[in-house]
Amino acid sequence: MKNYAIVTKELTKRFGDFIATNAITFEVEQGEIFGFLGANGAGKTTAMRMLCGLLKPSSGEAKVAGFDVYTQTEKVKQSIGYMSQKFSLYEDLTVKENIRFYGGIYGLSNQQIKDKTHALLQQLNMEKEAGHLVSSLPLGWKQKLSFSIAVIHDPSIVFLDEPTGGVDPITRRQFWDLIYEAADRGVTIFVTTHYMDEAEYCNRISIMVDGKIKALDTPKKLKEQFNADSMNDVFLQLARAKS
């Protein structure tokens, strides 16, 4: 049996009559970069929030890092990293203070925090900015910092919700370098995006339409399946079919 980072079975979330996520079933392997695509309102964020333990599913099953999302949310939270589209570091704290805070609440020891801070600043080439307030950093830097802090406790899975929104192409490229580095260390990456070139970087992709997963495969096979030149075409075919 393969080692799965995420397993879901018929996972469903209803808000009143509205079914945001309709019986989705998929597996994500350990160390995989898994692209989670879909138009706005297709149910991606809801699905992701359930997997992160932020939202109780209405029905179905899901296991994240081997822990049940209904009953073991605290353990799920300890083993995942999360970075949302909304920038979520403290603007009125310095780079170093942010690292210390998040390291601390994930239970790292003072020595670990010190080592991590050092390594992280070196990796991001931000040693000079360690004492600067986060609000003074350019957006691209903030996003990279945000990602590094999301994995500060070495989670086995990291969820990225449109991490590169509004970031220039060069920084986006650098951002993906960070993602690859993490994936090389065996971290599973679960990422949503609206950039189809980014979708091509993923090992496998799922495309959600109206709360259901309509396609799930490697980018190459998806293109073959839909007889398309690019992921953009695949996405448009699926998203348009609905309307």
Binding site: C52, S84, S88, I105
Partner: peptide
């Protein structure tokens, strides 16, 4: 308002 609560909610903070 800042959205940081979202981030805190995915951490193991009780």
């Amino acid at each position: 308002e800042m959205g940081t609560i979202e981030q805190l909610n995915v951490t193991p903070i009780r």
